[in-house]
Design a protein around this nucleic acid. Structure first.
Length: 410
RNA sequence: GUGGGCGUAGCUCAGCUGGUAGAGCUCCGGGUUGUGGUCCCGGCGGUCGGGGGUUCGAGUCCCCUCGCUCACCCCA
């Protein structure tokens, strides 16, 4: 049997309904804040991610689905959404539009990771990007929008972690300081952390082994090294959240896995998710646009996992099926009448289903009951129809031509 | 890539120290020669994940392999 590839899944009708609801929430909440929807290609030039996401990240180093297009170009299934949106911003000259340009998307992404609960090789994200604004209000607004979305979806056990990574300059200085600190204590660090000191020293904060954690307790913190402008920006973001009543915890060890973040970073977690506790997160990426050869442009955004939001929301009540009319055939020669009746009912705005399986009449009634049909039209000989109210069980005879009208006004 | 758990009907699962594959649900039919929801009866449906081995005999024991899943790592 051919199965869906490892880490991928089929979205069956019940699940599709939940996703439509989530998308409707996203469109309503983000649309009301002036975000327009964008869709970018499923694959992009590999270089976009190599430069945009960062050569040192796990995503670029080992998780990308990269292929040759046959013409010598290296393409990659998009592993995230921010770099493509920035590419589109540059390509379409959006810096000439009123700033910030606010965009949102719901798209699928691809990473070659070992799948587990809440983590797939093809997964969907709702993302939003506000490009062209350095204002702390932008950061806070995005956080609030994501909080609203999570609330609307019904995500449970959600908490917000917040931090600031500073500007590239202070971050670079801090990185050197942290590297020196770590190198001086290499013997006490785990092998994994030790190997990546020069590549990504910030990662050491996320380590779980006792030795490294011990070292990190005394480590210098980036939050203590922020220059005055960055510290002020961060303070304003916090103040806006405080005023807005959005709860959060400052987490100096919060490190997002993509290299492009600057200043504000945030992550919503849910304790009902298992190991993959992040539901959605994001931050400011003031340096990314230049990295992609665009004009220096401050920007901020978030991405939230659709599957994780649905997991965190738990099982919803099953949406009731809505079937106005089921058309049963008492005799095979009634098929033509039934067929036309189903079309007439649908033209009148009713949901109508025709018997398609060749069941016995008893079987048809049973089926109609199970799909929750309000009425069953039993088509007999000579275009004569018995219309049965499935709730009361009452039944009356009428012409096929009168059935639609009878069902429309109960 | 590494480790744990699990692979028996479409789904959820039972199957004792090896002895001729089961239940519930679903689906279809019948009981009601053209009438649902409850009930009763019947039917469809399985190379017991795959391969090899031990044995008179393997779903059950041994080896290998594949898949799923959770976790590490990382992240949505």
């Amino acid at each position: 049997m051919i199965r869906a590839p490892r880490g991928t899944f089929d979205v069956l009708p019940d699940d599709a309904a939940r996703r439509r609801t989530l998308e409707a929430h996203a469109e309503r909440i983000l649309g009301a804040a002036g975000y327009g929807q964008i869709e970018t290609p499923t694959f992009e030039a590999t270089e976009l991610f190599a430069r945009g996401v960062g050569e040192a990240t796990d995503i670029v180093r080992k998780e990308m689905y990269t292929f040759d297009d046959g013409g010598g170009r290296s393409l990659t299934l998009r592993p995230e959404g921010t770099a493509p949106v920035c590419r589109a911003y540059i390509e379409h000259g959006m810096h000439k539009l009123p700033q910030p340009v606010k965009l949102w998307y719901l798209s699928s992404f691809f990473r070659a990771e070992a799948p587990q609960r809440g983590r797939y090789r093809q997964f969907w994200q709702v993302g939003a990007e506000a490009i062209g604004s350095a204002a702390p209000e932008t950061d806070a607004e995005l956080i609030v929008l994501l909080a609203d979305l999570l609330g609307a979806v019904g995500a449970k056990g959600v908490r917000l972690r917040l931090s600031s990574l500073g500007t590239p300059e202070t971050r670079a200085e801090y990185r050197e300081e942290l590297k020196l600190y770590l190198h001086a204590r290499e013997s006490r660090l785990s092998e994994d952390v030790r190997e990546r000191i020069d590549q990504n020293p910030l990662r050491a904060f996320d380590a779980t082994d006792p030795g490294t954690r011990d070292v990190m307790r005394e480590a210098p913190l980036l939050l203590d090294r922020l220059d005055p402008q960055d510290a002020a920006h961060f303070a304003q973001v916090r103040e806006l959240l405080d005023t807005g009543g959005v709860g959060y915890e400052i987490d100096p060890s919060l490190v997002r896995g993509l290299d492009y973040y600057t200043r504000t970073v945030f992550e919503f977690e849910s304790d009902v998710l298992g190991a993959q506790s992040g539901v959605g997160g994001g931050g400011r990426y003031d340096g990314l646009m230049e990295e992609l050869d665009g004009p220096a442009t401050p920007a901020c955004g978030f991405a939230a996992g659709v599957e994780r939001m649905l997991l965190a929301a738990g099982e919803p009540p099953a949406p009731p099926d809505h079937v106005d009319l089921f058309i049963a055939l008492a005799k095979p020669n009634g098929a033509g009448t039934g067929f036309e009746l189903s079309r007439a009912a649908r033209r009148a705005g009713l949901s109508a289903q025709l018997e398609l399986a060749g069941r016995s009449l008893k079987g048809q009634l049973k089926h109609a009951d199970r799909i929750g049909a309000r009425y069953v039209a039993i088509v007999g000989d000579d275009g004569h129809v018995s219309l049965k109210d499935m709730e009361s069980g009452q039944q009356r005879e009428l012409d096929a031509a009168d059935v639609v009208q009878a069902v429309r006004k109960p």
